[in-house]
Amino acid sequence: NKFNKELGWATWEIFNLPNLNGVQVKAFIDSLRDDPSQSANLLAEAKKLNDAQA
């Protein structure tokens, strides 16, 4: 379904953000699993944090 596809894509993108540490990645992935409907918002937050830590 739509959420599974978005969840998978967001998970892959978060895993590939180079400036996040393992704890941050795990926290974002756990949040995605808790509420897949928020995948776009969580991915945006992860990208912002990644950019801030560059």
Score class of each variant (00 low, 15 high):
Arg33Ile: 13
Pro36Met: 05
Gln53Val: 06
Glu6Ile: 12
Trp9Glu: 09
Leu32Glu: 00
Asn1Tyr: 03
Asn41Ile: 12
Leu32Ile: 11
Ser37Asp: 06
Leu49Ile: 09
Ser31Cys: 13
Gly22Ser: 13
Phe3Asn: 10
Ser31Trp: 11
Asn1His: 11
Asp51Tyr: 08
Trp9Asn: 07
Pro18Gly: 06
Pro36Trp: 06
Gln38Phe: 10
Ala52Trp: 08
Ile14Gly: 02
Gly8Pro: 06
Gln24Asp: 02
Ala54Tyr: 08
Ile29Asp: 01
Gly8Arg: 15
Leu49Val: 08
Ala27Val: 07
Thr11Gly: 07
Ala40Ser: 08
Lys48Cys: 09
Glu45Asp: 11
Ile14Arg: 01
Asn50Ala: 03
Ile29Glu: 02
Asn16Ile: 09
Lys47Thr: 05
Asn21Cys: 09
Phe3Gln: 08
Pro18Arg: 07
Asn41Cys: 11
Lys47Phe: 06
Ala52Val: 10
Asn21Pro: 01
Leu42Pro: 00
Val25Arg: 14
Val25Met: 06
Gly8Asp: 14
Arg33Trp: 15
Ser39Gly: 06
Ala46Asp: 00
Asp35Tyr: 08
Ser37Phe: 05
Ser37Pro: 02
Pro36Lys: 02
Leu17Pro: 00
Ile29Ser: 02
Trp9Gly: 05
Asp30Pro: 01
Glu13Met: 14
Lys47Leu: 07
Ala10Pro: 04
Asn16Ala: 07
Gly8Val: 15
Val25Pro: 00
Pro36Asp: 02
Asp51Trp: 10
Asn16Leu: 08
Gly8Ile: 15
Lys48Tyr: 05
Thr11Gln: 11
Ala10Thr: 12
Asp35Glu: 05
Trp12Ala: 08
Phe3Glu: 11
Gln24Arg: 00
Asn19Gly: 03
Ile14His: 01
Lys2Ser: 13
Asn50Gly: 01
Phe28Cys: 03
Lys48Gly: 06
Phe15Cys: 14
Asp30Gly: 06
Lys47Arg: 14
Lys48Asn: 06
Trp9Gln: 14
Leu43Val: 14
Phe15Ser: 09
Gln38Gly: 05
Asp51Pro: 01
Lys47Gly: 02
Glu13Gly: 03
Asn21Trp: 12
Ile14Met: 04
Ala44Ile: 10
Leu49Trp: 04
Ser37Arg: 07
Leu32Gly: 00
Ala46Trp: 02
Ala27Tyr: 15
Asp35Pro: 01
Lys26Ser: 06
Pro18Leu: 10
Glu13Thr: 09
Leu17Lys: 00
Leu32Pro: 00
Gly22Cys: 15
Lys47Tyr: 13
Ser39Trp: 15
Phe15Arg: 08
Leu17His: 01
Leu42Ser: 02
Asp35Gln: 08
Arg33Leu: 14
Thr11His: 06
Arg33Phe: 13
Ile14Lys: 02
Ala54Glu: 07
Ala54Trp: 08
Gln24Leu: 03
Leu20His: 00
Arg33Cys: 14
Asp35Phe: 08
Lys26Trp: 12
Gln24Val: 02
